[in-house]
Write a protein that binds this DNA or RNA. Structure first.
Ligand SMILES: [Mn+2]
Ligand SMILES: [Mn+2]
Ligand SMILES: [Zn+2]
Ligand SMILES: [Zn+2]
Lengths: 146, 146
DNA sequence: GCCTATAATGAAACAGATTTTCATTTTCAA
DNA sequence: TTGAAAATGAAAATCTGTTTCATTATAGGC
């Protein structure tokens, strides 16, 4: 196990996985522990490399399968990268959005956007019925500003 | 050439490509014409199939290379799909965002979001300097509501 | 604690998307 | 018109992600 700075959240995830009918295996525990404690989004291969430090015979296939389970349960979400494919990150809680550091990848969760006026105006102008919105901010974290 | 409903914009793109040092080839013209006139985002293979109707010996590699050029010049942008890889679309002009139909893919460009209050509050709370934002709305277009 | 049904794993093969290589063709400025 | 250089397209290579299947680990019943 790594330093496990947040055992409570790890346990919550494991409990939810078990409740949902999944078995708690060693590879699963390792992957959950890494994701819960990561300050930034991780790609499958990154997660695989980190995971093998804890559990050397981990397979990349298991990483993909575990990410699918966690995404299905809403515990992680995809973060789309500007260039290519996406990475995974602890999901936002309720109505939160992401603020990502463009230099180090540090992620910050925020809430408090009220876009209803914009939605109404846009719906009226376009004739669309608006169902969802997707908002993400980019910037420099406190560390990376120097 | 297809029906070419907007020759002016096609010409603008070609002029900008030429100014940037690119040669105006037949495959390039075909791809630009399709993208300028598309009402929805297209994937590379879709674009390839459409392109071959106009220019049968078009290669898929050329589609990829042309999309790179157009993206580099800011003429097209990627649209991230919920599941996997992205598609390409005429880029927004200035400060516009996208509203996409979840059923037929129809795209609508809109402007008028004022998120400055949110940016200020979030910057203060997080210590980040905010550089960019990414906002995309999803809904049902007028046609798809029935 | 031991046993067993079955879920989960990982190696290998497969599939799909994108990139690289390289010989040939096309563009465009002289 | 000509030729240097850019662009093209076929084929091979690379990278991601998925499927298959034999083996292993888990959880629940004893
Ligand atoms: Mn919101
Ligand atoms: Mn994406
Ligand atoms: Zn940073
Ligand atoms: Zn529609």
């Amino acid at each position: 196990m790594s330093e496990n700075t947040d055992p409570t959240l790890t346990d919550q995830w494991l409990a939810q996985l078990q409740t949902s009918g999944y078995r708690l295996t060693q590879p699963l525990r390792v992957i959950v522990d890494i994701l819960v404690n990561s300050p930034r989004a991780l790609g499958p291969v990154e997660l695989y490399d980190l995971g093998r430090k804890e559990y050397p015979r981990l397979g990349l296939v298991t990483v993909y399968r575990t990410l699918d389970k966690l995404e299905e349960l809403g515990l992680v979400q995809r973060v789309h990268q500007i260039g290519g494919c996406h990475m995974y990150l602890r999901a936002t809680q309720g109505h939160e959005h992401l603020l990502l550091c463009t230099r180090c990848g540090q992620v910050c969760y925020f809430k408090g956007d009220d876009l209803s006026a914009l939605f109404n105006a846009t719906a009226e102008a376009s004739g669309f019925v608006i169902q969802e919105h997707w908002l993400q901010l980019y910037g420099l974290c406190a560390n990376c500003q120097s």
